[in-house]
Design a binder for these strands. Structure first.
Length: 329
DNA sequence: ATGAAAATAT
DNA sequence: GATATTTTCA
């Protein structure tokens, strides 16, 4: 690591500010800043907020009244919007610093002629304690800190970011992947969405896309051998059972339900097959996850120690920006 | 952005 | 040589 050129817009907190009392001691700040600080100060902390993901109406009840299930993306959007707002606020507080004047939105980019639509890149703003615990490092998911690669020693002054080490899909990671895919339903499970819901720092869309490709192949191959018989080579995929919601076609459990089939005049020999009634929601209603919320904490800590080394992204102490964060939201 | 195939890395 | 993951391509 070459030492910093000294000039980082490190917002130093005064000792007094560090204590939880005098945050608004703005002797060097302008009036606007004071207002903003006061506003921010008055916000409830993340712990004080009632989780949005808690449905007031049970899924069953909602289904009975034809109320569509809450969209998961909504919560994500809220989260993102919040982050965006905070970023903007901070930007207003210190607009200068690194980019004083007419700095082109695209400082330097790879010479890829294909990469043209990458213009929109909301630079990630470093968290200042507010909701900073939502994103996890892959190594953290592994629950094994010893596997942390010493550093990405591949320093590069030339502006080229060193290729990030290849991702290893450990059972923990895969589990999370499967969970998310299951919630989305196999139809809606596309790389970008999966990536977002997995909420793993350092995980790229390409990573997910690749894994998804393989996973689909696995599922297909699985159907072929109707009798469960994961090939001996499917170590990883076999480690996490395939949720029913992903198994073949949606099962009849989503059918208007609770209403005996006789009511519909359906011959009971059909009872074992798929019933042709409103099944499009099948994958989303009763797939075994009554209240799934986008991953935010380690509630999956399975403790398995496959802990293979994931040399991927780590979060630098004071800056969530990895040099070449490709994340465009 | 996505899915599939080709290319690499392990 | 077989797999796992990345990169390229449509």
């Amino acid at each position: 690591m070459a030492e910093d050129s000294g000039e980082r817009d490190s917002v130093r907190l005064h000792p007094e500010e560090d204590a939880d009392g005098g945050v608004r001691d703005g002797r060097a700040v302008h009036g606007d800043d004071v207002r903003v600080l006061e506003w921010v100060d008055g916000l409830p902390s993340g712990e004080d907020l009632i989780p949005l993901s808690q449905p007031l109406v049970s899924p069953e009840l909602a289904a009975a009244f034809s109320i569509p299930p809450p969209d998961l993306k909504t919560m994500l959007d809220i989260h993102r919007a919040t982050q965006h707002t905070i970023c903007n606020l901070r930007r207003q507080q210190n607009p200068s610093k690194s980019s004083p004047a007419a700095a082109p939105p695209k400082p330097f980019s790879a010479a890829d002629p294909k990469e043209s639509s990458t213009s929109q890149k909301p630079s990630r703003c470093p968290d200042q304690g507010l909701e900073s615990s939502s994103m996890e490092t892959i190594a953290e998911i592994e629950g094994d800190s010893s596997s942390l690669p010493t550093e990405n020693s591949a320093e590069d002054n030339s502006g080229r970011m060193p290729k990030r080490p290849r991702l290893v899909w450990t059972p923990q990671l895969h589990k999370r992947f499967v969970d998310v895919v299951a919630h989305l339903g196999i139809k809606n499970a596309v790389p970008k969405t999966i990536m977002q819901l997995m909420n793993v720092d350092g995980l790229t869309r390409e990573n997910v896309a690749s894994h998804l490709q393989k996973y689909r192949l696995y599922l297909k191959r699985m159907q072929g051998l109707s009798n469960d018989g994961p090939s001996s080579s499917d170590h990883l995929f076999a480690s996490t059972p395939v949720p029913q919601s992903l198994q073949e076609q949606p099962m009849p459990y989503a059918v208007p339900t609770m209403i005996p089939m006789q009511v519909y005049g359906i011959p009971h020999h059909h009872a074992h097959g798929v019933v042709p009634v409103n099944n499009h929601l099948a994958g989303r209603l009763y797939n075994g996850f009554d209240s799934f919320q986008p991953y935010a904490h380690n509630d999956w800590s399975g403790g398995s120690k496959f802990a293979s080394i994931v040399s991927n992204a780590h979060v630098s102490p004071n800056d969530n920006n990895r040099t070449g964060e490709k994340r465009k939201q």
